[in-house]
Computed example of a mutant assay.
Amino acid sequence: MTPTTVRRWAWIHKWTSLVCTIFMLLLCLTGLPLIFHHEIGELLGNEIVAPEMAPGTPRASVDTVIAAGLAMYPDLVMQYMSQEAGDDKIWHLTVGKTRLDPDFKSIAVDARSGKVIQENKFEGTFMNIMLRLHADLFAGLWGMLFLGFMGLLFLVATVSGVVLYAPFMRKLQFGTVRRERASRLKWLDMHNLLGIVTLVWALVVGATGMINTWADLLLKYWQNDQLAEMIAPYKNLPAPAALGLLQPGVDASLKLEPGMQVGFIAWPGTAFSSPHHYGIFMHGKEALTSRLYKPVLVDALTSRVTDSRDLPWYLTGLLISQPLHFGDYGGIWMQLWWALLDIATIVVLGSGLYLWRKRGRAGSAP
């Protein structure tokens, strides 16, 4: 590599790093507790635990569950109901003033007794603040897109750092840290070492994080593409004045997809359905397939299945990127590895700022 090429790559690495480093530090710091969100929730007493019941206790009708939740807020309407993968004891209901009300309330209802367990409190909690800072800086779609751009700069900085690694380290053995030399050289060696060790993780987490910032745009494209095709026969029909029972639609969906279970249900008029349908989103039972959804549209009046199809590749890619980003699909050991690599990346980012500051001082000294 010629000196001119090295200088060009060094310029790219320097400025992409400087622009994105502060925001990447924020994302690494807020992402660290999010890796252990379940464990921290249990420690803070925020995790909802279903009461003990005899094994094999039959489940209540989803319509009974809905009625119990709405009894708490009779002036509100249903938006969604969901259950976590591997835990079918609790339904989480989301209710608001309208189907699209962002100021919703969340209620946990026992799936077996049909009784309310408690109202979920998210706003203002530590984990909610960490999640909002990590996801969109409390700025909605524009915040997500901005962080996505920072993620792109981070990927460019990482790749340019790899390109520069060989010429800068050609006279040193791999892993060398010159502790006996000046502080700046020691930190330069540490920066290079941790950067190359965390390379694959940084690329995976950076790329999946950038993909996650496109979630709203990808969802809107799906709504205008495949969902529009699925609801085309209802295009000119008036929205139903009243909704039918949901349990027959759930039963029909489970019969249609016998190897799957219900992940979440979207009410007519929400982002994941149409004015005429319940959107019942099924998922598998394995570690990977539990992250992949298959929509089943159920007529809100007749409770009959009207359409069902696999999600397109771009939404499948988005759903796969989410567990890869947080490392929360491989148990506690994978979470610990993700946390250690996150901390190492914080050191890489911090040392990069330190080296730039030291170099700037050295350049201005007489």
Rank of each mutant, 00 (worst) to 15 (best):
T4W: 10
V6K: 09
V6L: 11
R7H: 12
R8F: 14
V19H: 06
C20E: 10
T21K: 02
F23W: 11
C28Q: 06
T30R: 08
T30E: 11
L32Y: 10
H37Y: 14
H37R: 14
G45I: 12
N46G: 13
N46E: 15
E52Q: 12
R59P: 02
A60P: 08
V62A: 03
D63M: 05
V65G: 07
A68F: 06
G69D: 03
M72K: 12
Y73K: 14
L76M: 15
V77F: 02
V77I: 12
M78H: 00
S82M: 08
W91H: 05
L93N: 00
D101H: 06
P102H: 03
F104P: 07
I107V: 15
A111S: 11
V116G: 02
M130A: 13
R132Q: 12
A135T: 12
A139K: 05
G140K: 00
L141Y: 05
L147M: 07
M150N: 05
M150D: 05
L152I: 15
L164K: 05
K171A: 13
L172F: 14
L172Y: 13
G175Q: 15
V177S: 04
E180G: 15
A182Y: 03
S183N: 07
W187R: 03
M190C: 03
N192F: 01
G195D: 01
V200P: 01
A202H: 03
V204Y: 09
V205S: 01
G206K: 00
L218S: 02
Q223A: 12
Q226I: 06
M230N: 01
I231N: 06
I231C: 05
Y234T: 02
L237S: 09
L243V: 11
L254A: 02
K255P: 03
E257V: 09
E257G: 06
I265Y: 04
W267I: 10
W267T: 09
A271S: 14
P275M: 03
H277E: 07
K285D: 13
K285L: 15
E286S: 15
E286R: 14
R291L: 02
P295M: 09
T302H: 10
T302I: 11
R304P: 00
D307K: 11
D307C: 06
S308P: 02
S308T: 14
P312L: 07
W313F: 12
L315G: 07
T316V: 13
G317K: 01
S321T: 04
Q322T: 10
Q322Y: 11
P323Y: 09
H325F: 01
F326N: 04
G327Q: 08
G330H: 04
W337N: 00
W337E: 06
W338M: 05
L340Q: 03
T345E: 02
V347W: 04
G360C: 05
R361D: 11
G363L: 13
P366E: 11
